[in-house]
Amino acid sequence: MAFPIPQLIHSPTSPLLNLTPLSLNPKIFQSSTPTPSPPHLNVLHHSRRRNSTSLLRCSASSFPEKHHTNSPNSDDVTELPLFPLPLVLFPGAILPLQIFEFRYRVMMHTLLQTDLRFGVIYNDAVTGLSEVGCVGEVIKHERLVDDRFFLICKGQERFRITKVVRTKPYLVARVAWLEDRPSPSADVDVDGLANEVETYMKDVIRLSNRLGGKAEKEVGDLRRNLFPTPFSFFVGSTFEGAPREQQALLELEDTGARLMREKETLKNTLNYLSAASAVKDVFPSSSSPSSPSS
């Protein structure tokens, strides 16, 4: 089932990285809270902007050390207003939005009188509406004179749609809450996996900075004492420009499986960067990994 989704405006500047199969932006690891710029469409998503504040930024400081301690019981079923978007929100991540379309302004008026929570659900023209999404809780908002809203939301619990109960004036669905289950394999060391993933992330950032002509420097602590589950969500939130892969990670209910998939993705990206770095050493005039050979 496909629903209309707001357009996204991307920064016209070139991306900091242009990787295959993954684009991972080192700036996403900054910890400052983003401030929305004056927007003119439903949603502004200025990812990969140089020398400016990104409107979609996920930082380790956004992710609680202990995650889902106050989550609803996974057996609970509730109705939740939904906001279909061509992006994926992870638990703990920060998402700035601008509400412009009439039906979502109506939704905001309702939310401001209730619990400030709605479901962010990935939707695109090819795959349609996903079944699994993440609750976005409004932590800051500004209402403008023309009844638009600026929001800063934080990802909370994941959910699965069990039934669409209303489509007008905005989408409302009955949802069940999701939590990661213990890995079926007792010998899976999720903490060790998380450390491996962090190492790969550091190597990807280091090499991508080198290819971008930046001075190499030691990458700091990315995990910041996060437990494996919230860390796996944080890692998924940094996979910029790959929403379908992010959706697949969001839907997994096994922390070990999610970390393993992220490890393989980062490993493949690192192999690509290593090859690109070797080419750059041989042909120093090459400006980027994607530059055609002369």
Rank of each mutant, 00 (worst) to 15 (best):
M1S: 13
M1E: 13
A2R: 10
F3T: 07
I5Y: 05
P6E: 08
Q7N: 12
L8S: 02
I9S: 11
H10R: 13
P12K: 07
T13M: 11
T13R: 10
T13H: 12
L16V: 05
L19G: 14
L24I: 12
N25K: 00
P26T: 05
I28H: 12
Q30W: 07
Q30H: 11
S32F: 15
T33K: 15
P36C: 04
P36F: 04
H40R: 15
H40I: 14
N42Q: 15
H46Y: 15
S47T: 13
R48H: 14
R48C: 09
R49W: 11
R50T: 07
R50D: 06
S59A: 15
S61I: 14
S62T: 08
E65K: 12
H67V: 12
H67G: 08
H68E: 14
T69N: 07
T69R: 10
N70F: 11
N73A: 13
E79T: 13
P84F: 02
L87M: 15
F90D: 03
G92P: 11
L95P: 03
P96I: 01
Q98R: 14
Q98P: 00
F102I: 12
V106A: 06
V106W: 04
M107F: 03
M107L: 13
H109C: 08
L111E: 02
Q113N: 12
T114V: 04
L116I: 03
R117C: 12
V120G: 03
N123L: 06
A125V: 13
V126P: 00
L129P: 02
E131A: 08
C134A: 01
V135D: 08
E137C: 02
I139K: 03
H141W: 14
R148F: 05
F149P: 05
F150L: 13
I152G: 03
I152M: 08
I152P: 00
I152Q: 10
G155M: 07
Q156R: 09
F159G: 00
K163F: 04
T167D: 13
Y170S: 02
V175S: 04
R181S: 08
P182K: 06
S183C: 11
D187G: 07
N195C: 11
E196I: 09
V204C: 01
R206F: 11
S208E: 14
N209P: 02
G213C: 06
G213M: 08
K217V: 02
L222Q: 03
F227D: 15
P228E: 06
P230Q: 02
F233L: 01
F233G: 01
F234Q: 10
F234K: 09
V235I: 10
V235W: 06
F239Y: 13
F239K: 00
Q246P: 07
A248V: 09
L250A: 05
L252D: 04
E253Q: 15
E253A: 08
G256D: 01
E262I: 05
L270S: 00
N271E: 15
Y272L: 04
L273P: 08
L273M: 14
A275M: 14
A276I: 03
S277A: 11
K280H: 05
D281T: 09
V282G: 00
S285N: 10
P289M: 10
S290H: 12
P292Y: 00
S293P: 00
S293L: 15
S294Q: 10
